[in-house]
Computed example of a mutant assay.
Amino acid sequence: MSIVGLQNEVNRNAWIERKLKEIPDGWHILDAGAGERRCKPYCAHLCYTSQDFGQYTGCGDKKGLQTGSWNQENLDIISDIAEIPRPDLFFDAIMCIEVFEHLPAPLLALKEFSRLLRPGGVLLLTAPFCSLTHFAPFHFSAGFNSYWYEKHLPEYGFKILEIEKNGNYFEYLAQEIRRIDWVANKYTNCKANLFEHWIVKSLLKRLEKLSRRDTGSNEILYFGCHVLAIKE
Rank of each mutant, 00 (worst) to 15 (best):
S2W: 07
S2D: 09
I3C: 04
I3A: 07
N8V: 01
E9K: 13
N11A: 07
K19T: 04
K21S: 14
K21V: 00
P24L: 03
P24R: 05
D25T: 06
W27R: 10
W27E: 12
H28D: 05
H28R: 13
H28S: 11
L30G: 13
L30R: 06
A32Q: 11
E36Q: 12
R37G: 01
C43H: 04
L46C: 13
L46M: 12
C47T: 06
C47R: 12
S50I: 06
K62T: 14
K63V: 12
G64C: 09
L65N: 02
L65Q: 11
S69E: 11
W70K: 04
W70N: 07
N71S: 11
Q72I: 14
E73F: 08
N74D: 15
I77S: 05
I78A: 08
R86G: 00
L89D: 15
F90C: 05
D92C: 00
E101H: 06
L103Q: 02
L107D: 08
A109M: 10
A109K: 02
R118W: 00
P119Y: 09
P119G: 11
G120T: 05
L125H: 08
T126K: 08
P128R: 11
S131G: 10
A136Q: 09
A136E: 10
A142G: 05
G143Y: 09
N145K: 07
N145Y: 10
S146T: 11
Y147H: 13
Y149W: 15
K151A: 11
H152T: 04
Y156W: 09
I160W: 04
L161F: 07
E162L: 09
E164V: 06
F170A: 02
F170V: 01
E171M: 10
E171T: 12
Y172A: 04
Q175V: 01
Q175F: 15
Q175R: 14
E176Q: 13
R178P: 02
R178N: 10
I180S: 10
I180G: 05
D181T: 08
A184G: 00
Y187S: 03
T188K: 12
N193Q: 12
N193V: 12
H197Q: 14
S202W: 11
E208K: 05
E208T: 00
R213M: 14
D214A: 04
D214Q: 06
T215H: 14
G216F: 11
G216P: 05
S217N: 03
S217T: 15
N218R: 08
E219T: 09
Y222H: 12
F223M: 02
H226S: 14
L228A: 05
A229C: 06
K231I: 09
